[in-house]
Write a protein that binds this DNA or RNA. Structure first.
Length: 507
RNA sequence: GGAGCGUUCGACUAAGGGUUAGGUCACCUCCCUUUCACGGAGGUAAUACGGGUUCGAAUCCCGUACGCUCUACCA
């Protein structure tokens, strides 16, 4: 029985993988795993002019980071390879010939220049039944002319012959019944002059050969679905055709339209899953990973963009997503991407993630910030103290750098307006009292000592706490002051107080 | 221009003929906190418009508007 669920993600390796692409992978993956099926990665590299070095590896790296590992791929192999369309050229040629033989396709000898000229002359030109006969192809030309042209190796393409009148009807899992009158679609090129198939031919042939049971793709493909359905009918029979689902688009946060790389740059958020550097321009586009997202959070918010399980639950592990996923609950309408909400998901996942694991994930970020960490156990402790105020992994740097080194800048401007001689005296005395302490006092002892000293100087503790905080961390942020002192310990505390006192009196 | 698809708070969405149209993010207020957060309690805020069908419509039907996608020898 051929009822096994097999789905594929079929990107073209032309650059970084963006949100919409990853979500398509995700829905494929969730659907496959939910049904105990297989998830295949197929590389659609039939356009040699758009080939980009490293893009395929990038896709695989991204899938790895996300934890969406294919069961079959160019790397893993599988029973239905090759999984790169450029390596399947001969297969497509064969099916294109079959279509010609059956009269469902024809040779076209028009040059790109011919077509351009025609488009100039005829407004809204379509290569269809209305204009087919005006063009240079095996329908308009005589048999002998055609064989002559072929014999001379005249560059040519193969086009599908769209029937004059036919209604194509199919059921989309998300949208229900969709109907097209094929008279509005043109005779799409199936095989290009270089012998490579276009998407239209390749997707149908490969989905058949790879026994794909369900085909999911972005909504932008809906208008060309009739071409694919016609090809299924001509080549393999509609009963073998996979079930289709056209996924809603991910839109720009403001205005409307498909989310693009440009929007991210303009609005200051990532669009690609991971950093992508264009080999020709050397430009690097920042990714969610490097921006400080946890893959679990990335996957989680992507899943919630256009889908929900019907309850109020929003935080899902991948296992929970697999268990709950149902394509029929996917929205029809596009969803605007909201970076703030994405960060909220990440924050929730940071809170959920064990400090030891966070420490490991954070190490590269600290390395990059050139913050030296001498003891992992100290890092883990610090993480526990600041994690509630971090939306991104990169936030840990700004939120905790003062635990590892004295702050480089002290916001004295925030202290100065209410600064006075008796406070100066107090902090000098505080430093002195620290010098007389031994061991490693805990926060509560430190606080008690501080309050006693404040009372003897006749200053309210509240007037001293903020200056002390700024002296220690550089600004108005961070965990409890005495917890910080306990962590950075007495000698460092004294140094920071004395340094700040110098700054304050110097002004 | 044509074809297809879509439309519930600012955003993501719930409600599949009967709810004061619910939740989350964001925003605002208060509490907690002698910082910033976390947490807690409240608040502002939506069924695109017009017709039907029905005792009853966000929900079903029709029309309009608006938006989006496609309309390449790109995917």
């Amino acid at each position: 029985m051929d009822s096994k669920v097999r789905v594929r993600f079929a990107p073209s390796p032309t650059g970084g993988l963006h949100l919409g692409g990853v979500r398509t992978v995700l829905f494929n993956y969730l659907f496959a795993k939910h049904h105990g099926g297989e998830f295949i990665l197929r590389i659609e590299d039939t356009d040699q002019t758009r080939f980009v070095e490293g893009a395929e590896q990038y896709i695989i790296d991204t899938l790895n980071w996300c934890g969406l590992i294919p069961d079959e791929s160019p790397l893993h192999g599988g029973a239905y390879g090759p999984y790169r369309q450029s390596e399947r050229k001969a297969i497509y040629t064969q099916y294109a010939s079959t279509l010609i033989e059956k009269g469902f396709a024809y040779y076209a000898f028009d040059t790109p220049e011919d077509l351009e000229e025609k488009r100039k002359q005829v407004p809204n030109f379509q290569y269809n039944r209305a204009h087919r006969m005006e063009m240079k192809n095996s329908i308009s030309l005589s048999e002998s002319e055609v064989s002559e042209l072929l014999k001379k190796n005249t560059p040519h393409v193969i086009r599908i012959k769209i029937p004059d009148e036919e209604e194509v009807v199919f059921t989309d899992i998300i949208r229900g019944e969709v109907r097209f009158d094929v008279s509005t679609v043109d005779d799409k090129v199936l095989l290009k002059a270089d012998g490579m198939p276009t998407y239209h031919l390749a997707v149908v042939v490969d989905d058949y050969l790879m026994k794909i049971s369900h085909a999911f793709r972005g909504e932008e493909w809906l208008p060309s679905a009739p071409v694919h359905i016609l090809l299924w009918k001509y080549l393999f029979g509609l009963d073998k055709m996979p079930k289709w689902a056209h996924l809603p688009l991910i839109l720009k946060p403001e205005g409307s339209g498909k989310l693009s790389k440009r929007d991210g740059e303009r609005l200051g958020f990532p669009v690609f899953a991971m950093d992508w550097s264009d080999p020709s321009t050397k430009e690097t586009t920042v990714g969610f990973k490097e921006k400080g997202f946890l893959p679990e959070a990335f996957i989680n918010f992507l899943a919630m963009l256009g889908w929900n399980d019907g309850s109020d639950k929003e935080i899902f592990t991948i296992e929970e997503l697999i268990a709950a996923f149902d394509l029929e609950r996917v929205h029809k309408g596009g969803a605007k991407f909201d970076y703030e909400k994405a960060k909220w998901f990440n924050q929730e996942w940071i809170k959920k993630t064990d400090n030891t694991i966070l420490a490991e994930l954070l190490q590269p970020f600290f390395d990059q910030a050139k913050i030296e960490i001498h003891e992992r156990s100290y890092l883990i402790k610090v993480i526990g103290m600041v994690k509630d105020r971090c939306h991104l992994l990169t936030d840990f740097i700004s939120q905790s750098s003062f635990f590892f080194a004295a702050p480089t800048t002290i916001d004295t401007a925030a202290i100065l307006p209410k600064w006075e001689e008796k406070k100066h005296a107090f902090f000098a005395a505080l430093a002195q009292s620290f010098k007389e302490m031994s061991g490693k006092p805990v926060a509560a002892e430190l606080e008690a000592n501080f309050k006693t000293l404040a009372a003897s100087h006749e200053i309210k503790p509240g007037d001293l706490l903020l200056p002390l905080r700024i002296m220690l961390v550089g600004g108005k942020f961070g965990p409890g002051v005495f917890d910080i002192i306990e962590a950075i310990e007495i000698p460092d505390t004294i140094k920071r107080i004395e340094h700040s006192l110098q700054l304050l009196s110097g002004k």
